[in-house]
């Protein structure tokens, strides 16, 4: 029996995917009534503070985890098309401008781990990808990823998720382009500049569908396995706030009127280092207490895109002046986005 289950995706991958999608949808549709029933079965008044908090927790936890599993699985399959080698081959030899747009967009799909930032950076530069285009990629890859987008989608709705996607790409494109215009190639570390140039080749990314399914499963194991405790904590905090804390608690010092709150949020975010999942509990808490959306998103972007440990890693390939410019340009981009949000919404 077990043997059959294991072999199934291999023998008939399309059927497997269809059935998996249907099962997923059915479960997802069942979440709201089931969570209501669970809370109703508990000896708690549904309309009390505790009832509201419990309902939120029992509905949102499975909802977000299911969304995350589904999207990470799909992204795992898509990611298998976009190896760093292939991305590099697409970008090599292109002129700036359009290439910044492509680099930022590819950053969303190419699997990336900040511990690989340096080899990736060098690989790009060696193949003749312009510095600004490389940086567009390095800004977008960690900041705009499936985990951040799914969590925003699950907890705050598709509008916030889309805005985050659009503005994250915008910052990556513009910041990379600006740094490219500044002609800072001289501020690469010498050993990086002196590396021999190489021809970019895409390598073979073809694999049968069942292999991609397997890649999808392994990214679910890896990513969901790593981030679920953060998500649980985030939703628990959110549930507590939902039931208990008075609204507008944060509004006075993180609301729209406090103009200084955006730069402050960016500044506080730089030394903080966590991934998209770790930041969500805080975002959840701030938003629910009446902080302005622009301020909160600026904080989130700053924490994820500008982290001190990553700068320390990049210091091995970039001179201080280029790192400072990088931080400055990206921080200004995030500031602008924060203000636009606060004024436009």
């Amino acid at each position: 029996m077990n043997e059959m289950v294991v072999r199934w995706p291999e023998r008939n991958p399309r059927l497997f995917l269809t059935v998996a999608a249907l099962v997923w949808l059915a479960l997802y549709k069942a979440l709201a009534p089931v969570s209501e029933a669970v809370v109703a079965a508990l000896p708690v008044d549904r309309n009390s503070h505790l009832g509201g908090a419990l309902q939120f927790f029992f509905y949102d936890t499975p909802k977000v985890l299911m969304l995350l599993t589904g999207i990470v699985f799909l992204m795992g399959m898509i990611n298998s098309h976009f190896t760093p080698e292939r991305t590099r081959a697409i970008l090599a030899g292109r002129s700036e401008g359009m290439a910044n747009v492509m680099a930022a967009s590819l950053g969303v799909f190419t699997p990336f781990c900040s511990c690989s930032a340096v080899p990736l950076f060098i690989g790009f530069v060696q193949a003749g990808v312009p510095l600004g285009v490389t940086l567009s990629f390095l800004i977008s890859a960690p900041m705009v990823n499936e985990v951040a987008l799914t969590l925003l989608l699950g907890l705050f709705g598709w509008k916030v998720a889309l805005l985050y996607l659009g503005l994250g790409l915008f910052i990556a494109i513009v910041a990379g382009w600006v740094i490219g215009r500044l002609k800072m190639e001289a501020y690469l570390e010498d050993w990086v500049r002196d590396m021999p140039k190489i021809q970019a080749t895409a390598g073979d990314t073809s694999m049968p569908l069942y292999e991609r399914i397997r890649t999808g499963f392994s990214s679910v194991r890896e990513i969901v396995g790593r981030v679920w405790p953060y998500i649980l904590a985030g939703i628990a905090i959110g549930a507590g706030i939902h039931g208990y804390v008075p609204e507008d608690f944060m509004a006075s010092f993180m609301g729209k009127e406090a103009w200084w709150s955006v730069p402050l949020a960016v500044l506080i975010g730089i030394p903080m280092y966590t991934n998209a999942a770790g930041i969500i509990p805080i975002v959840q808490a701030l938003l629910a207490k009446g902080a302005a959306l622009g301020t909160v998103l600026a904080f989130m972007m700053s924490v994820i895109a500008l982290s001190l440990p990553e700068m320390v890693i990049l210091r091995k390939v970039l001179k201080v002046r280029l790192i400072a410019t990088f931080i400055g340009v990206v921080a200004v981009g995030i500031l602008i986005v924060g203000y636009i949000f606060n004024f436009a919404l």
Partner: peptide
């Protein structure tokens, strides 16, 4: 060591090199 790592021409880590040849790159091998 970063310089040694990039001298193998890999762009993502962890990578595995057997007898001087890169056989795996970017992620824990199965």
């Amino acid at each position: 060591d970063m310089q040694q790592i990039v001298s193998y021409g890999v762009m993502s880590t962890p990578s595995v090199v057997i007898d001087g040849k890169v056989v795996h790159s970017g992620g824990i091998p199965s």
